[in-house]
Nucleic acid binder design. Sequence first.
RNA 1: GGUCUCGUAGUUCAAUGGAUAGAAUAGGUGUUUCCUAAACACUAGAUCCAAGUUCGAUUCUUGGCGAGACCA
Length: 593
Amino acid sequence: MSVVVKIKEAAASSIQALYGVSLIPDQLQVNATKPEFEGDYTVVLFAFVKQLKKSPDALGQEIGTQLINDYPQVFTSFNLIKGFLNLVVANQFWLSFIDTQKNNDQFGIHAATGKTVMVEYSSPNTNKPLHLGHLRNNFLGWSIAEILKTNGNNVVKTCIVNDRGIHICKSMIAWQIFGNGATPQSSGVKGDHFVGDYYVKFNDAYKAEMAELIAEGMDATLAEKEAPIMKATQAMLLDWEAGEPAVMELWRIMNGWVYEGFATTYKKIGSDFDKTYYESNTYLLGKDLVASGLEKKVFFQKEDSSVWIDLTGDGLDEKLVQRKDGTSVYMTQDIGLAVHKNEEFHADQSIYVVGDEQNYHFKVLKLICQKLGIPAADGIDHLSYGMVELPTGKMKSREGTVVDADDLVDDMITIAKNKTEELGKVNDFTTEELTELYDTIGLGALKFFLLRVDPKKKMVFNPEESIDFHGFTGPFVQYTHARIKSILRKQENTQWQTTTVAGELLPLEMALTKQMELFPDTIADAANEQDPSKIAIYIFELAKIFNTFYNQLSINNAENEEKKLLRLQMAALTAQILQRGMAILGIKVPERM
RNA sequence: GGUCUCGUAGUUCAAUGGAUAGAAUAGGUGUUUCCUAAACACUAGAUCCAAGUUCGAUUCUUGGCGAGACCA
């Protein structure tokens, strides 16, 4: 049990004993003590002053005294300043923390809860390659899954591929017109980019045709519908839905090219899924739910026979669930898929990692499922993340400002390569080792950059300034890890791994130990908040404290043998936490760099 | 028009209603006969505006101003 949790429980039971008032430990506010005051952790007393009818000072005095009496092995003293009860944690407590965790390679991993959580993320369209926004989605989804696993859950990672619809047909039509039978192989272009290029060609041709029609005097909105290339695309979509063999064949081939391209990118960035759904298989799901919804009077039918749900009672509006021609809309498909997923995996919770532009959609989805009495309804949980914007605003494909995922990854790796060569610290590495190191550093910088921010907030990416390798960055943490490993490699005997050390901790040693002790709580916090940035901030802080420690105190040439053993233990545990914390973010840490 | 987010150092980000609002970066100044200087130390710099709630507000409420998303 962590110190903070211990303090909360101890203080709650002290209050119970002293005043007969029972509190939930989490009602207590425990903060790290500000550095200018004496103490390690602080209980904020104001909240209970009214309830217990005591002055903050009297309250603190009594609770503090009680805590020290009851837990002499944890607390040595306390002081009271303006309603803050500052507690000093015993030196021996920290020492025994190091001693018990030094060989625990499971430190930070929580006991199994038996809960199953599905995490759906990535969910690409098959007409375009991935861009910067997809990277945030992929890194978030993968990392949330890891955080939940570490916090004791079973996790199923899923992806729904949007592989059908008008947008795919646009690429297909353009390829028929302009492709001359070209393939990714014949042109040397990665499959997803290849298909994406035809999507761009479609839009160019479409625009040109519209301009021509308008020049001939046609109304602009009519020209949008009447442009021949658009009419051909609409016709192709109908053929696809009818299962016309030639269209299906082309669709399979072109999607195949895209999947090959995606597979390469996913492998590079480390995304993977336990289960992939394809919209072409699932888009008819949910149709039967419309009938049962009408029967239950959850839905209603308008005169044109379209089906709706009235959500005005919930502060929303009326929402279409089936068109007048009987075709279903996204909402209906999503309800169907939610039911299907639940039947397949019986998850307690189903997290959808989807951009905040769909907040309304998911609010409605959950509400409809609840009204239909679908078992999976309450588990629906939209992890809504903010868009990645450029300094100039939103990325716009029309203006060519979309940051391509593959290009960005390659750029980062190249920067890592140049910097590494410049420093010349790993000149003895083989080519394979170097390639791996460049990938580790380049991707580490990119992932850390995108994950260090609260997911709910939109973030700004500046391509000019690119991503730094100094300060609050992935490479900073990786470098700290490599330095520790360098020290550990040089140790000739392994006595430090087994010795129990005594003695008085120096302030820097204690600061490092305190930060390490917070790791399991940080994992739990990140899991509850569904927020990987908590981990990123935590590991960075740990690395920073270690670097100060490393600068001020010698490990190898410590004052005495006992200190050397202790510091080796602390360094090794630090490295282990950095490694695990970064792994949760999907980032590797090198042995040398 | 309606609903919902968001406004914090020059810039990018922190801060369950708590003590003198933290970092990083950019700027200025230092540190290498010493375990990797992708590091460390010092310095300077911010809560959009106005009311309200209270012991205490960046945080909660209301109203402005500004940015964005969604629904028509």
